[in-house]
Nucleic acid binder design. Structure first.
Length: 301
RNA sequence: GCCGCGGUAGCUCAGUGGUAGAGCGCUUCUCUGAAAAAGAAGAGGUCGUCAGUUCAAUUCUGACUCGCGGCA
C-alpha cells in the first residue's frame, strides 16, 4: 500500500492440541526471553475450573506472570469479544514493561481474534432475543435471515441455528447487514505450533485423564454444581464437565462417562489441529530447542 | 443331549419377498461476541455358512455352525 508505518510490536503465539505441553513451553520460553504469558483458553478463563481444564498451577508458573486465567464466573457466559478486549489491554501492559507477550492456549478462535485483530460486529448478545429465536426451526430462521440480509444468508450454514440466530441478532440491532469479516492485526506475531503424532497424543490424553480423576476431578465438578452452576451449564462446557455432569445425574454409568470423555478429548484435539491446518504462518516445532532458536531469530530481526 | 432366543456397517441394534437403515465411532470440512460450543459432508455391509421354495431371498423352509439363557 505504500503507507509508511511503525513496526508492530512482536508477540509470540504458542498453539497446539490439548496435552501437548504448551504451558510448559510457554513458561520455559518466558524465562529464557523475558516473557509473560497470556492464556488463550475459553475454559481456563473461569474460576474454580482447574483440574478439568488443565489450568497451570501457581508452582508450575515458576514466577512467570500469567493473564486471562480465573477472570470470569462459570455462572456467566464469557465470549471471544471480551477475551480480545481484556487480552489486548494486558498485552499493552506487558509491552510497556518491555517484556515479551507470549500468547499460549488451545482455543484457536481466541488466538486468531487477538493476534489477527479480527473485527467483530459491536453487538453484545441479547439472550432474550436469542431465546425467542431459538424456538424456531432452522429453516424459518434461514428464511428470516434471507429477507433481512441476503448476502449473509448466502454463505451461512443453513442448518446452524446458533449462527443464524447471531446473524439475525446483528442485523436487528444494527439495522444493517452483517459486515464482512475484517482483520486488523496490531502485532507482528511468531506462531509456534506443537505437533504430536495422534497416536502418541492419544496415549498422553488417556494417561492425563486418569491422573485428573485421581486428583479429584469428579469432586471439582460436584463443587461447581453445589456452588450453583447448573448441570445444563456444566454440560455446555463440554468434555470433563459435560460427561461428569451426566454421570453425577445418573444419566450414564461411570464407565461410560470415562469412555465417552476419552474419545471426546481425542476428537477435540483433532479439531484443534484442524483449526490451524491451512495456516501457512505456523512454525511446527518438535521440541523446545527448535522453539528457542526460532524465537531468537524472530527477536533479532 | 433337549428347548428357547439370537448371529445385519468398527460397536449397539432397527428392518423388508424385489440385494438394506439408525445411533455412536471413523474420515473430511465450516467457523462474524456460546468456540471444550454450534453445524455440514463422506467412507464402511457378498444381512453367520450351505442347500431348498420362488421369476426374485438378507427377509420363508431345512441342515449346519457360533453365542446367550433354561432344562437335563
Amino acid at each position: 500500500m505504500g503507507i509508511k508505518r511503525k513496526n508492530k510490536p512482536k508477540v509470540v503465539a504458542i498453539l497446539g492440541p490439548t496435552a501437548s505441553g504448551k504451558s510448559d513451553l510457554a513458561v520455559n520460553l518466558s524465562k529464557k526471553f523475558d516473557g509473560e504469558v497470556i492464556s488463550a483458553d475459553s475454559r481456563q478463563v473461569y474460576k474454580k475450573m482447574d483440574i478439568g481444564t488443565g489450568k497451570i498451577t501457581p508452582e508450575e508458573m515458576q514466577g512467570i506472570p500469567h493473564y486471562l486465567l480465573d477472570i470470569a464466573s462459570p455462572k456467566r457466559k464469557f465470549s471471544v469479544a471480551k477475551y480480545k478486549e481484556i487480552s489486548q489491554k494486558k498485552i499493552e501492559k506487558i509491552l510497556k514493561k518491555e517484556k515479551l507477550p507470549i500468547i499460549c492456549g488451545g482455543t484457536g478462535f481466541y488466538i486468531t481474534a487477538l493476534v489477527d485483530g479480527v473485527i467483530l460486529p459491536e453487538v453484545a448478545p441479547d439472550w432474550k432475543l436469542r431465546k425467542s429465536l431459538e424456538k424456531e426451526n432452522a429453516k424459518n430462521l434461514y428464511e428470516k435471515l434471507k429477507k433481512l440480509d441476503p448476502k449473509r444468508a448466502k454463505n451461512i450454514e443453513k442448518e446452524n441455528k446458533r449462527r443464524l440466530v447471531r446473524a439475525i441478532e446483528i442485523v436487528t440491532k444494527t439495522k444493517k447487514p452483517v459486515p464482512k469479516v475484517k482483520k486488523n492485526s496490531p502485532y507482528s506475531p511468531l506462531f509456534l505450533g506443537i505437533k504430536i503424532k495422534q497416536e502418541d497424543l492419544n496415549k498422553k490424553i488417556d494417561k492425563r485423564l486418569q491422573e485428573r480423576l485421581k486428583i479429584g476431578m469428579i469432586e471439582e465438578v460436584k463443587k461447581l454444581r453445589d456452588s450453583g452452576v447448573s448441570f445444563k451449564r456444566l454440560e455446555e462446557f463440554g468434555l470433563e464437565y459435560k460427561w461428569i455432569a451426566l454421570y453425577l445425574q445418573n444419566k450414564i454409568s461411570y464407565k461410560e462417562a470415562i469412555e465417552r470423555l476419552s474419545t471426546d478429548i481425542k476428537n477435540f484435539s483433532k479439531r484443534q489441529m484442524r483449526w490451524w491446518k491451512q495456516d501457512k504462518r505456523i512454525n511446527w516445532i518438535k521440541n523446545e530447542k527448535e522453539a528457542s532458536s526460532l524465537l531468537k531469530k524472530f527477536l533479532s530481526k
